[in-house]
Amino acid sequence: MGGWAIAVHGGAGVDPNLPLERQEQAKVLLTRCLNIGISALRSSLPAIDVVELVVRELESDPLFNSGRGSALTEKGTVEMEASIMDGHGRRCGAVSGVTTVKSPVSLARLVMEKSPHSYLAFSGAEELRPPTGGVEMVDNEYFITEENVGMLQLAKEANTILFDYRIPTVGFDKCSAVVENPLQMNGLPISVYAPETVGCVVVDGEGRCAAATSTGGLMNKMSGRIGDSPLIGAGTYACEVCGVSCTGEGEAIIRGTLAREVAAVMEYKGLGLQEAVDYVVKERLDQGKAGLIAVSRNGEVAYGFNCIGMFRGCATQDGFMEVGIWE
């Protein structure tokens, strides 16, 4: 075994004109979360504990689209989703439609460990209350930021799902709210694509892999829409071989079962980790835009994306550490 490794992401697809101040804020947050994970791994915490710890931290910061700062539905509310998977035994838990649980990833872990199920949604997920506690409740307003309220208004004026609320698309006029030659998702116009998910993958010193992913989804999404993030095998997957967390155009990630495909080509084609990531990004996304992070049981770390950038960071036991946005 090659020791522990960790990777985090804050979404794939970044405006090349994103202000430098915003870029630095993102790098500081990713570095902080990486260091939390590194400390936990040095303390011999299991991989499953580390991915939950890191994603909880990402959910608590409004910079990315998960937990506080989540994108708003067409009704102006927040419906969050998350999943977690322990490659040791392939145990998993997932939640969707969460509106008052402060940390959706921790609720997903409770589904995995304290319920007979793998996936709970909406009121069923919210009502999961083990006697030991473990979930903090807050009002839906806690998750809503002034910036996202403004972006929802823009999306409504344009009559579109804002897939990236930081980038005006070609021909997108905020005044007339006209979209010419828009990109499409399932045949419907969307704005240009961007960061909308957070995730973490870890292999610990024992070679155990784990993955977790959390998101608020799409700005102006239909109430009840579920993306790839809580879907095991699509947005999140972990097994004996690797751990994977995806980000990007959820509908395309779902169609390509992206996270599971990385493990599958490693298992069945014998590809190495980076080779598997590159293959899946190139061959399984069709016209979709996305990215992913991955670790292997051998202590390797890898990432890939087919868009302009991905907020990401990674570190390994041998001292390598990197935080970046662009190619």
Rank of each mutant, 00 (worst) to 15 (best):
V323K: 15
D318N: 14
R32M: 05
I308V: 14
L218E: 00
D173R: 09
P195I: 00
G256T: 07
I253K: 02
E79P: 02
I226V: 15
V78R: 00
C307H: 14
I254P: 00
D228M: 07
G187Q: 13
T73Q: 00
S96K: 10
G171L: 02
L72P: 00
G205A: 09
V198Y: 01
H117A: 12
R260D: 07
Y237G: 05
I232G: 01
E251G: 11
G299M: 11
G3E: 06
S296H: 13
L18T: 01
G187W: 05
A238S: 06
S245N: 10
A259Y: 01
A194M: 08
A194V: 00
I253N: 04
T169R: 06
V101I: 15
T99M: 11
K102G: 06
I38W: 06
T73P: 02
V55D: 05
P19I: 00
V95N: 01
G187H: 14
L107M: 14
A12L: 05
R68Q: 11
D139A: 07
V265L: 10
S103K: 08
A194H: 02
L273C: 06
A71T: 03
V101P: 04
L183G: 05
H117Q: 14
Y193I: 15
Q153L: 15
D15A: 02
T247M: 08
M310T: 11
P130A: 06
Y279S: 08
G124D: 15
G233V: 07
L258E: 07
K102R: 13
V295E: 11
N181E: 10
S66A: 15
S296Y: 13
R32Y: 10
V54A: 11
G235P: 03
E59F: 13
G248S: 11
V202I: 13
R312E: 10
D164Q: 01
R129Y: 03
H117G: 14
N306H: 11
P46A: 07
P131W: 04
G272M: 11
Y165S: 00
T247C: 11
P182D: 09
P189G: 09
Y237T: 02
I36A: 09
E261N: 10
D286F: 08
G324S: 13
R109N: 13
F305L: 14
C33W: 05
E126S: 13
V54P: 03
A121T: 14
K174F: 09
V138L: 09
P116C: 07
V281A: 06
A177F: 00
D61F: 09
Q153I: 12
A7G: 11
D15L: 00
I167K: 01
A94G: 10
M151F: 04
E300W: 10
E267A: 03
A47D: 08
G256N: 03
V281T: 12
A302G: 12
E206V: 03
I190M: 01
E249W: 08
G133S: 07
V28R: 08
C175Y: 08
S96P: 07
M137H: 13
E206R: 04
N17V: 00
T31F: 12
I38R: 10
L188F: 12
T316I: 05
E300K: 12
L154A: 05
D173P: 01
W4H: 06
